[in-house]
């Protein structure tokens, strides 16, 4: 055993990867790596910022906390979990990446993700584009009216918001109502012709959750709970996430 290993062994209790292991079921298997490289060879983020999943895990295991909590690579791993799928030990590297993201000071995290999360916290829509519940219902009603008139087969089509007791609670990516409202219509038509009983919610309709990507636990839980609570209050049975 090299002296370096012994030296690192002494600090073991305080290193980042041990804290993460405590948080994960089975410790995310983070200590079981065989260094086979199956994760890295099939990871599209391999090579970006000179990093790859095996290297990231090895550096974490060696206690190189400074490096793993400052490399921008953590924002380039999409947490797609292909590495877990490929790994003989099912090691949860993406969860380690998630905690490395959360080790960044909030204001230093990527501006685009931060901004989208903060937008979603502005009002009950939880929309990353900041649209209010009023904006949303205006657009939905306006588009629905237009299509009912222009396309007679759909004169009875519905796009309800807060319909009590609807079976399906459907959320909606903000991009459509905000920038390309006509793109909401094909899905409404499909739901209409199959006779689905569905509703949007005035609260929590925004389908995207950038606070989760930001690794801001409190904020992403707030967003998920706002949508779930609205679905419960309306008595909906199935939450349909279109994201």
């Amino acid at each position: 055993m090299s002296s370096e290993t012994l030296k690192l062994g002494k600090k073991k209790q305080s290193i980042f990867i041990d804290k993460v292991k405590e948080l994960l079921p089975e410790g995310g298997n983070l200590g079981l790596c065989l260094t086979c490289g199956a994760c890295s060879s099939g990871c599209p983020a391999t090579g970006l910022e000179g990093m790859d999943p095996r290297k990231f895990l090895r550096m974490a295991s060696l206690g190189m906390d400074e490096e793993i909590t400052s490399t921008p690579w953590v924002w380039m791993c999409t947490m797609c979990q292909r590495c877990i799928y490929a790994c003989p030990m099912e090691i949860d590297i993406p969860q380690l990446v998630y905690y490395a993201r959360s080790a960044w000071p909030r204001e230093s995290r990527p501006k685009g993700i931060l901004g989208s999360c903060d937008m979603a916290l502005r009002n009950d829509s939880c929309s990353a584009m900041g649209a209010t519940p009023e904006d949303f219902s205006f657009v939905v009603e306006d588009v629905l009216e237009e299509y009912r008139e222009a396309q007679p087969e759909f004169k009875d089509m519905q796009a309800p918001i807060d319909k009590k007791g609807a079976y399906f609670f459907l959320n909606q990516n903000s991009r459509e109502p905000v920038t390309e409202p006509d793109e909401m219509v094909p899905l409404w038509k499909i739901l209409h012709i199959v006779g689905a009983d569905w509703t949007y919610g005035s609260k929590g309709w925004g389908g995207e959750n950038y606070c989760m990507f930001l690794a801001d636990d409190e904020a992403w839980e707030h967003i998920a709970r706002t949508a779930a609570k609205q679905a419960d209050e309306l008595g909906c049975k199935v939450f349909l996430n279109t994201e």
């Binding site: 099939g42 924002w75 999409t78 947490m79 797609c80 685009g112 901004g115 990507f213």
Partner: peptide, 13 residues
């Protein structure tokens, strides 16, 4: 393979 749009990558800059 993931397309690369996930995990916030699209908004990360």
């Amino acid at each position: 393979y993931c397309c690369g749009g996930g995990g916030g990558f699209l908004q990360s800059g």
